[in-house]
Nucleic acid binder design. Structure first.
Lengths: 259, 259
DNA sequence: ATATTTGTTCTGTTCTGATGAACAGCCTTT
DNA sequence: AAAGGCTGTTCATCAGAACAGAACAAATAT
């Protein structure tokens, strides 16, 4: 980790930064917030908070209800539209639901975004276990199975650059923080075609993932299953689940080349 | 429609407006866009577009891939988090899925946002019909069943103010544009407890909706079913579907008062 | 090899966005 | 009833940030 991983823009627009900070503060606090409270949270004066809030409101990103502001659902619409823009989403979503239904486990689809992995879709089986992360939330690549699968499907120089620019944080004691050790595991993953995660992101959460074949040379993606270790283990994990994950990636590939 | 419906903020932050315009331009164009193209679309100089793009990128809202920019999935995460903040979402989502599965039709949950109705959740049955709108997208209240159900559950002075401040656009020839006529229908809806939409938003799309009982006096919401007129009509619509919509609202109320 | 077009940097100028105080409205408290 | 402390909003002032435009380098096209 030598590189410049904090790419601060040379000529950043400060007003935008505070506006986004206010928007995120609104999202963070579930309950409606007043102008004064918001100003304190973000660290700006009351009138500044008011100006930004009214512009956010006029743009449809914030909602005012009797002197209190809250985040609107407009970001949800933006997110769904960008997601629908992914060529493979419709097909993958369908297969992901099938996978979740067939295994009774939580199935996820990840894409590479800058230097992180982002869950695009999370399929939870009927009344099943709930994943501790949201769709659209950027996660480190080295701590989960889909992330490692994505890394394994990249050219080695890109992997080196990503690892160099990334602070290999260790959420649990099982996390791999040594780049050399990680590179070794990536080679293993490339050979097997499957990546595993054993409580490296969240204690007691296990994952399996396989890279999604690059469709028309565009987005790097991976697909996997994750769940608590008391259910995902032994042969069930290594053969049953792993097999279904692999066959699902093949089904998606078929669906995409067919159209 | 006399009132001031274009509430332009008195002291708007222009930099924020251009940043958001750029973000939305990114979302609109599915494909990666260059700086120059974006500058042309938004109507700013090249350097300005560059500055805003790099701040959006640093904040995680835009992604750069080899000299081209695209929207990130971060808005999706924000949207899902605000949605999860709605107290009734978890329970309603469950019942909505049940409703969609039981009827084989598309079920939706709407909330009131400013002067519009926003779909919070859209449950489509297995391989079913796809609704022509996205979750999080703000729609006029007077052109769809959930919107009318929401209006009907508001105090009459609020309804008057909303109708006064809203331009009653007419997407189809069936749309009601006369405030008096609309007020009459709202009274009817209050009596029946159900609202109907007959191709007033999209040609050939029918909807039924019922207001969701106000939980702890917070958000105004409604729940409904919609689909093509060739399937949703006659007794099936008026009795079968309508009955299931009404019983679903009751189930949600039970779920919420239980906890 | 030349000519365009790209993204990025940079500097000066302008106008905007931050400041901090003052305003009016709404509670609660006295 | 009246006073005090809250709130969100407005306003005039001025430092400074955001903009336009030119100049740069690198990649692509001719």
């Amino acid at each position: 980790m030598i590189g410049n991983m904090t790419d601060e823009p040379k000529y950043a627009v400060e007003a935008t930064q505070t506006s986004l900070a206010i928007l995120e503060a609104l999202v963070d606090s579930n309950d409606p917030v007043g102008v004064t409270a918001l100003a304190d949270i973000v660290g700006v004066s009351k009138s500044v908070a008011h100006n930004h809030l009214s512009t956010l409101r006029a743009a449809g990103y914030a909602v005012k209800r009797s002197d209190r502001y809250e985040a609107s659902l407009r970001p949800l619409a933006l997110g769904e539209r960008t997601r629908d823009g992914f060529g493979f989403y419709q097909a993958a979503k369908q297969q992901l639901d099938n996978l979740a239904a067939a295994t009774g486990e939580t199935a996820t689809l990840f894409v590479l975004e800058e230097r992180g992995g982002v869950p695009v879709s999370i399929s939870e089986p009927e009344g099943g276990w709930s994943a501790p992360f949201h769709a659209g939330e950027r996660l480190p690549l080295h701590v989960n199975a889909p992330g490692k699968a994505i890394l394994a499907s990249l050219a080695s120089d890109r992997v080196d650059r990503i690892l160099d620019e990334t602070d290999l944080v260790a959420p649990t004691s099982a996390t791999i923080v040594d780049p050399a050790e990680l590179t070794d595991e990536l080679r293993q993953i490339r050979d097997d075609g499957v990546a595993f995660c054993r409580g490296e992101q969240y204690e007691g959460i296990i994952g399996v993932a396989a890279p999604l074949p690059q469709i028309n040379g565009s987005r790097t993606a991976a697909l996997g299953v994750c769940g608590p270790v008391n259910r995902l283990n032994g042969r069930y994990l290594r053969e049953d689940i792993t097999g279904q994950v692999l066959s699902t990636t093949k089904s998606i590939q078929v669906d995409l080349t067919a159209n």
